[in-house]
Design a protein around this nucleic acid. Structure first.
Length: 424
RNA sequence: GGAGAAAUGGCAGAGUGGUCGAUUGCGGCAGUCUUGAAAACUGUUGAACCGUGAGGUUCCUGGGGUUCGAAUCCCUAUUUCUCCGCCA
């Protein structure tokens, strides 16, 4: 959520940057917000003044009661009755205005960093770099959804029986590969200084609002209506919300947490060949890294996080490329996002396996996650997160790229975790 | 699931209708002393909003109510604890 004071002081800049994000209606909404905020200030002054007067009278009445001047007190009591009426009305007005401002503000996306490429579609994303050689496969090579059947690693149909499409059942070496990847990713994150946490995978609406999934992504999350809880679409939600309504000390920063969770996404509106096999699932596993940092360090931190994710891909010997997302392709709350994509050789396409973002104060403003700086001033921290990594597409790429006529080779870095070096 | 008790500042813990944003202790910060540190002593120490400022308003788990006036009384939600029951 954008800060009101920033919108007031930098209206031009806000509009300019919302345009980069292709946010429609920016001018109308921002102007409404500014007008409402001005009304808010006026309403608060009225309310405050009325209360100050009533407080003063109450104090006088107290003193009169003590000194036995009951009749004088009665006169003042009558006076306060009117004030009380006004007070109620002003409070009501103030509350309504504040609610209106909030309602508008939560629909406004974050301002993109000025280096974000202008554009509307994934084609406008900027390719930052590409790493690793594209493998050449043998003649009988197949996409991963055939490999998983051939080696009995994943049973998609069984998942349909148990739950529905997009909920695969991992079996045998397929299941062990999942567990190996999770442990491998967590160990690497720990070695990089992240503190491992295990968090609930159901969260309340406050948490959904805190990190920006609500109201923006309402329809994309599974919602348990009986208890009004949401299945998390990413571990970012609970891990970042740990710092909701928290005031940190400067010495607490940077906070670095990592965690494994299953993730749930309804993927309403997805269709076609893109959803084949492991490409797009309703339930998948992911290790997430999250940092809370001082504002002046957030962009340096973003690069470090991106490099960390790259190092994982390199160790797994997967060809990958880095994209800097354009304004139109960035997520709602992000100021700058890098996507990492691995090459899926049998499908001959890039698959997104990680998204690393700096949210600046967008989430922390909603979360009220602040810290006391060196001067003792309380200010909003910056939050960042990244997938490190999402499993399904990594598995797809590993299986496809490493297939040989003898079977599928496991990358060296992973063998200590799987306990086998070949799937055949 | 049933019965009871409780929720106060970073923590502990006073306060049961009128200068209470809240006694006090610990912790934190600053200073005195010291070569330095510790100890001792002194001071200071919550957040949000409005206001150029002086200052004002709000917040004692959340929400509602009673009252001229509520941390204090009432209702309600949530959470925690104790006892009983059930159970991975």
């Amino acid at each position: 959520m954008l800060q009101l004071s920033y919108i007031q002081d930098n209206t031009e800049d806000v509009l300019k940057r919302l345009a980069i994000k292709n946010f429609k209606d920016a001018e109308r909404i921002i102007n409404s917000v500014i007008e409402l905020d001005n009304n808010r200030k006026a309403a608060q002054r009225q309310a405050d003044d009325t209360k100050a007067e009533a407080n003063a009278l109450a104090k006088q009445i107290g003193e009169m009661m003590k000194s036995g001047k009951k009749d004088d007190a009665e006169v003042l009591k009558a006076k306060t009755a009117e004030l009380k009426l006004n007070e109620k009305q002003f409070d009501e007005t103030l509350k309504n205005i504040e609610a209106e401002i909030y309602k508008l503000l939560v629909t406004v996306p974050n301002l993109p960093n000025l280096t974000v490429p202008v554009g509307k579609t994934p084609e406008d994303n900027e390719v930052v770099n590409q790493h690793g050689a594209i493998p050449v496969l043998h003649a009988a090579a197949t996409p991963h959804w055939e490999l998983t059947t051939k080696y009995d690693l994943i049973d998609f149909e069984l998942g349909v029986k148990l739950t529905g499409a997009g909920f695969p059942v991992y079996k045998g070496k397929g299941a062990k590969l999942q567990r190996a990847l999770i442990n491998y990713f967590l160990d690497k994150a720990t070695a990089a200084g992240y503190n491992e946490v295990q968090v609930p995978i159901l969260v309340n609406a406050d948490s959904g609002y805190g990190t920006g999934q609500l109201p923006d992504k309402e329809g994309q999350m599974y919602h348990c209506q009986v208890d009004d809880l949401y299945l998390i679409p990413t571990a970012e939600v609970p891990i970042t919300n740990m710092y909701r309504e928290v005031i940190l000390k400067e010495s607490d920063l940077p906070i670095k947490n990592c965690g494994y969770t299953p993730c749930f996404r309804r993927e309403a509106g997805s269709y076609g060949k893109d959803v084949r096999g492991l490409n797009r699932l309703h339930q998948f596993d992911k290790v997430e890294i999250v940092q809370i940092v001082a504002p002046e360090n957030s962009y340096k931190t973003l690069e470090i996080m991106r490099e960390f994710v790259c190092s994982l891909l390199q160790e797994l010997e997967l060809p990958y490329r880095t994209l800097k997302l354009c304004g139109g392709d960035m997520s709602f709350g992000s100021a700058l996002t890098y996507d990492l994509e691995v090459w899926s050789t049998a499908q001959a396409r890039w698959l997104e396996v990680s998204s690393v973002s700096n949210f600046e104060t967008f989430q922390t403003n909603r979360l009220k996650c602040r810290y006391k700086d060196a001067n003792g001033k309380t200010q909003l921290a910056h939050s960042l997160n990244g997938s490190a990594l999402a499993l399904p597409r990594i598995v797809a790429s590993l299986l496809e790229n490493n297939q040989t006529e003898e079977g599928i080779k496991i990358p060296k870095a992973l063998v200590p975790y799987t306990g086998f070096d070949m799937i055949n």
